Amino acid sequence: MSQRLERDTLGRLVFKDPNGKMHTGVYPVRAFPITAPAAGLSIMDQSGKELWWYASIAAIPESELALIEEEMTAREFMPVIEKIIQVSTFATPSIWDIETDKGPTRIRLKGEEDIRRIAGNTLLIADSNGLQFLIKDSTALDKNSKKLLDRFR
């Protein structure tokens, strides 16, 4: 018997494990969502227990991958910062006006520790509301954005 992922009539993900047991309300979690999004993915139950591991996105059947991608789109909302327009002050807390791939917004940075280097030139910025913003490559930002960002690192 093999595992299977599907949606029930209420739109919840249901995972059928190799023993035939049905797990309702499961959710996918990437192992490395920023640095290696295609490298590994777990199917987790509602209590956070791993039910199944895919070593690679390529190992997931197409029909199930479509369901996983739909679910991930809702769970992995992480705007990408494309430009830093201005900051209210170079001390923290400060208010940042930014342009993201989702449009312009304003965030509040509580402290410099809210800017974390993930890998290479990739940065993760947490605003005061807990929302995560990604800078994929800080060296690719425009000159003004780099100048403003450098004041906080």
Rank of each mutant, 00 (worst) to 15 (best):
M1E: 13
M1S: 13
S2M: 10
Q3K: 08
Q3C: 03
R4E: 05
L5D: 05
L5A: 03
L5Q: 05
D8E: 02
D8R: 04
D8K: 05
T9Q: 08
G11W: 10
G11V: 06
R12D: 06
L13Y: 07
V14R: 09
K16A: 10
K16S: 10
K16P: 00
D17A: 09
P18Y: 13
N19L: 15
K21I: 15
V26L: 07
V26G: 05
Y27V: 07
R30V: 08
A31F: 11
I34S: 03
I34M: 11
I34H: 07
I34K: 07
I34R: 13
T35E: 14
T35G: 05
G40D: 09
L41D: 08
S42R: 15
D45T: 09
G48A: 13
E50F: 04
L51H: 12
W53K: 15
Y54S: 12
A55N: 15
A55I: 07
S56D: 12
I57K: 14
A58C: 02
S63I: 04
E64K: 09
A66M: 12
I68N: 11
E70S: 11
T73V: 12
T73I: 13
A74Y: 10
E76R: 09
E76V: 11
M78I: 13
I84W: 03
I84N: 03
I85E: 14
S88E: 14
T92N: 06
T92L: 02
P93V: 03
I95V: 15
D97H: 14
D97W: 11
E99R: 10
E99P: 00
T100A: 07
D101M: 08
D101F: 07
K102E: 14
P104V: 08
T105D: 11
T105Q: 06
R106V: 12
R106W: 00
I107L: 13
I107K: 01
I107P: 00
R108G: 00
K110W: 00
K110E: 13
G111D: 10
G111N: 13
E113T: 11
E113I: 05
E113C: 01
I115M: 04
R116G: 01
I118G: 01
A119S: 14
G120H: 08
N121R: 12
N121L: 08
N121P: 06
T122H: 01
T122C: 13
T122N: 01
L124P: 07
I125F: 03
I125S: 05
A126K: 04
A126E: 07
A126Y: 02
D127P: 04
S128Y: 02
S128R: 04
S128F: 05
G130K: 10
G130S: 07
G130Q: 11
G130L: 09
G130P: 11
L131I: 15
L131C: 06
Q132H: 10
F133V: 02
F133E: 00
I135T: 01
K136V: 09
K136W: 06
D137C: 07
S138N: 14
S138H: 13
L141A: 02
N144H: 12
S145M: 03
S145G: 03
K146L: 02
K146V: 02
K146E: 01
L148Q: 05
L149I: 01
D150G: 02
D150I: 00
F152D: 00
R153G: 13
R153T: 09
